[in-house]
Design a protein around this nucleic acid. Structure first.
Lengths: 135, 135
DNA sequence: CATTTAACCTATCGACTTAATAGGAAATAC
DNA sequence: GTATTTCCTATTAAGTCGATAGGTTAAATG
């Protein structure tokens, strides 16, 4: 299950991608439109901005705007940023690899191979879809 | 990420599938071999037995054994039993459907369509692989 | 029949995570 | 200089998860 953090982040990006106007969108209006806690969304937006996906403008008429074309933001990037590993087991994660503490070796682990396949099939979807596909 | 409950359950099933002998396997030996807490594994085995995947025999020489051919146990079944929904969002789950509390409608939800694709691609792997593939 | 073995059952606990909340500081527009 | 909006830190309530404890029940064995 995806965390609400990730879910909200994706929805916020989609909202920003939908408004192709130049004026920034405020986190409070996004929160209202999407049914998200304002403060919680704020922290997510901050996260996305620090990672370079969003720009921000303070004060009246301020808000957030996309720094890149939605087509150029694959979902893998956002999910890895907000959610963490995509893999179902740490030992098959590309970006968050960790050895499993219960396995003596990965070759002897019975679920390793299948989990690799699952990871690849999930990656296939997340890599080939971008924020633009959320519109 | 898969819960340890599911992970351990799959590994235990794999261990049972590997021993094609008629003598049952005890949860304590599986726990030792796989590096799992004995008591925790016990509760998982009980779960698998009640669902009909395992048979159990008490007393000396007792233990657990598979009730079906490993080839006939798709991983979807085990994961749904031990983990719950496979989908990343409740509103695209086949067996554990729930409407998302933040979405006003599923058509208007920006991530709905992509999450459907992810679910299908995960299901594709889990449905076409069985416990026999874990050996 | 007594003893051992291993499954079965219930309850509880500590650690961790998550989503949300609170309260303000810093910057910008007017 | 006032209103607005982002930015930052801290805290908390609730929930989950893995593990542990302490037994009861059923079966095999001598």
């Amino acid at each position: 299950m995806l965390s609400k953090r990730t879910k909200y982040g994706l929805k916020a990006l989609a909202a920003l991608a939908r408004t192709n106007s130049r004026t920034p969108l405020q986190s409070s209006t996004i929160a209202r439109d999407e049914g998200i806690s304002v403060k919680f969304l704020e922290s997510i937006m901050l996260n996305l901005r620090k990672a370079g996906y969003l720009g921000a403008k303070k004060g009246k008429g301020g808000g957030y705007y996309l720094m890149q074309d939605p087509k150029d933001i694959p979902l893998t990037d956002i999910i890895r940023l907000l959610e963490g590993p995509i893999a179902l087991v740490p030992c098959v994660s590309l970006n968050y690899y960790e050895p499993c503490d219960d396995c003596r070796s990965e070759e002897s682990c019975s679920i390793h191979r299948v989990m690799l396949k699952v990871r690849d099939s999930m990656l296939d979807v997340f890599r080939t879809h971008t924020v633009a596909d959320l519109i």
